[in-house]
């Protein structure tokens, strides 16, 4: 039946009841997604960021696990045996070379674990030193960022929430610390802390005074940018109605900050923490390079590179290896942080 043009008669086919299949088709909606799930999805789509994340995870896990089964220790001088002479054939080995006693063992048909990166001038296996150096650098970067995170979030949220006088005082302090030349102050403080810190007898002794002083210095100087960021976020968040309703219900300031304000700026916090890690690794390697970092014989990537400078003409690989590791770590952390920012908070991109 064909309708006349402009006729008001309804098409009856449109009013047939839906079959069960049709209902099934309509009810199949997209499963509900959370903010976090959306972000992760976007992050995984970003190939560069996903590769970087994978690389960071691999390098972190291997720097933690490899020392457990590696047959050499980072401070073990292979040529030195108790009560015997120092076997200098173990010093300065090129990659995949063996010391004299190891050569004999191999000739006798025994298996000897290879020195993948050779040994250093004290006859220490270089591979395990690089692994330990990576571990130290990552740990310093990670813990420094945690300290910065805690200080920055606490101070920033207090300043932002209470406003007025407290805010004014805190922000003046932030301004001053912000305008201090950070590297010079870090060097100065680490020179002094290195000599004043007395950790004997405490559990911190095992970590070493230099690393502790480095963490203190990071904490003292780098919280400012984080707290500025958090303060800005909180200033706008605290005007929201749900804060008013929480206040009306009698919630205390600490509860409002912890339960309402901080969770709402968590993405900013995570992103800037992630971008803080490579910064801290940079500074750590810089300080170690200048001899203000970790205590010998403990290696860090920076101190390995600076030690290698002395033998640069004969053993350039000892410099190239830690250099590549540092660059890869910093690069992938930077790229991952950028990806995280794009995925979770595109507004942050300036």
């Amino acid at each position: 039946m064909k309708n006349k043009p402009f006729s008001m008669q309804v098409n009856l086919d449109d009013f047939i009841p839906a079959s069960p299949e049709d209902k099934e088709y309509l009810s199949k909606m997209r499963p509900s997604s959370t903010f976090f799930k959306d972000g992760v999805k976007r992050l995984l789509k970003n190939k560069v960021a996903a590769t970087s994340a994978f690389f960071i995870i691999v390098i972190t896990i291997s720097s933690i696990l490899i020392p457990f089964f590696w047959p050499y220790e980072y401070e073990e001088m292979l040529g030195v045996t108790q009560g015997g002479f120092v076997d200098s054939s173990y010093s300065n080995l090129k990659p995949f070379e063996y010391g004299e006693t190891e050569q004999q063992k191999i000739e006798n048909g025994e298996k000897v674990f290879p020195h993948i990166f050779g040994t250093d001038n004290h006859g220490r296996d270089y591979f395990i030193r690089v692994v330990y150096g990576t571990r130290i650098s990552l740990a310093v970067g990670f813990f420094a960022s945690i300290i910065v995170l805690l200080l920055g979030v606490t101070i920033g949220s207090v300043a932002g929430y209470f406003g007025e006088k407290i805010d004014l005082i805190i922000m003046r302090i932030v301004d001053i610390i912000y305008s201090l030349p950070d590297m010079l102050v870090i060097i100065l403080l680490s020179v002094v802390l290195k000599q004043t810190l007395n950790l004997e007898g405490t559990f911190l002794q095992a970590i070493g005074g230099n690393i502790i002083s480095m963490l203190i210095v990071f904490g003292l100087l780098y919280w400012v940018s984080m707290s500025r960021l958090i303060r800005g976020q909180i200033l706008s968040l605290r005007e929201q109605e749900y804060i008013l309703s929480a206040k009306a219900n009698g919630a205390k300031a600490s509860r409002i900050i912890r339960k309402h304000l901080i969770p709402n700026c968590i993405s900013v916090v995570i992103i800037s923490t992630c971008l803080q890690i490579p910064n801290a690794i940079f500074t750590e390697s810089f300080l170690s390079f200048m001899g203000l970092g970790v205590n010998a014989p403990m290696p860090s990537l920076g101190s390995l590179a600076s030690d290698a400078l002395n033998g640069i003409y004969s053993y350039p690989h000892r410099l190239v290896i830690p250099a590549i590791v540092i660059c890869l770590i910093v690069l992938s952390l930077n790229l991952f942080g950028d990806g995280l920012r794009d995925a979770f908070d595109p507004k942050l991109k300036h």
Binding site: F282, S285, L319, A323, C327, V330
Partner: peptide
């Protein structure tokens, strides 16, 4: 430029030294 931003100056310096001086 992304690569250079990720390289600490002591590494750039040492690598340049290996290539151009050594």
């Amino acid at each position: 430029t992304t690569a250079f931003v990720a390289m600490p100056s002591f590494i750039v310096g040492s690598l340049l030294m290996i290539v151009f001086c050594v």
